[in-house]
Simulated scan of single mutants.
Amino acid sequence: MTKKLSLIALVLLTVQLTGCFPAVVGGAAVGGSMAADRRTSGIYVEDENIELKTMKRMSQYMDKASHINVTSYNRIVLLTGEVPNAGQQAQAETLTREISNVRSIHNALTIGFASSISDRTNDAYITTKVKARFVSENMFPANVVKVVTEAGVVYLMGIVSEKEANDAVEIARSTEGVSKVVKVFEYTN
């Protein structure tokens, strides 16, 4: 019971910190994350714009029963979440393709009912654990790998060397609660 209460407290704290930290730190957070990011500042901003524009289109044209997350890294878009049918899955990709400057799309949407708040909280917790292990293992700069978790599946994005990719996959794969790891990396020479 104590372990469960600790887990709930950690998740609640994580959710609270994620919402407050950018508000408190503001521009310094962006500047700090940019220093460790391998994308140019222009691409970083473009990724943010791609995510916002895509989410706006999704809210306008997708079935309200859909739960879609959009993550852009170096103009490669990862779609995760759930949609009610194959038509909506294809529609989400089509809407994303219409956004300017999108280089490619990794459509990982599944067909089924939208995940529950409990499922999403568990995914956020898994993401937090993977990121924390990146920092504690100190095998590569932790900020060069973006972690997205959906239904226990961890998606890893970033511009990395093969060694960094292998290390990140091994850390993620061996993290409790991770059912599968999917690489959406770009490789450096």
Rank of each mutant, 00 (worst) to 15 (best):
A28D: 12
D119N: 12
A92V: 03
G27Q: 12
L7T: 13
G32T: 13
V130L: 04
I43W: 02
F21C: 11
R97V: 04
S66I: 02
I43M: 09
G42K: 13
L95N: 01
F113D: 15
A92D: 09
G32P: 09
L95A: 00
V130D: 04
A142I: 02
Q16C: 14
G31F: 05
R57G: 07
Y73M: 14
F134S: 08
G26W: 01
Y61G: 03
N107M: 06
V147Q: 04
V15A: 10
S41R: 13
V83Y: 01
S115K: 08
I76A: 14
N143W: 00
P141N: 09
R75S: 15
G32C: 10
V24E: 10
L78D: 12
M34G: 10
E137S: 14
S104H: 04
T94Y: 01
D63C: 02
V30G: 10
K53L: 14
R97I: 03
A114R: 04
N49A: 14
E46R: 05
R97F: 02
A23D: 14
R57A: 14
L17Q: 01
L95S: 00
Q88F: 00
L7V: 11
H106T: 08
E93K: 01
D37Y: 00
Q91I: 02
E48L: 05
I68S: 08
A114V: 03
Q89S: 11
F21E: 13
D37P: 06
S100D: 11
F113T: 15
N74E: 15
R38M: 10
N143C: 03
F140H: 01
G112M: 05
M62G: 09
S72D: 10
Q91E: 14
N69P: 10
G112H: 03
S33R: 11
I126N: 08
T110N: 11
T127Q: 10
I117S: 14
R133D: 15
K64Q: 15
Q88Y: 01
L12K: 03
V11R: 07
E48D: 07
R97D: 13
A9I: 01
A108S: 13
T14F: 03
S115C: 04
A132K: 02
V45F: 06
G87L: 06
E46F: 01
T127L: 05
K146V: 07
A65S: 15
L109M: 02
V77Q: 12
T71F: 04
V145Q: 11
D37V: 04
L79Y: 01
S136V: 14
L10M: 07
D63N: 08
A35E: 15
V45T: 12
I126R: 04
L79D: 11
Y61H: 05
V15C: 07
D119P: 10
R97L: 05
H67R: 14
S41I: 11
E46W: 01
I43Q: 07
K56I: 06
N74R: 14
V45H: 04
M55F: 02
G87V: 02
T54A: 08
G27S: 13
V24R: 03
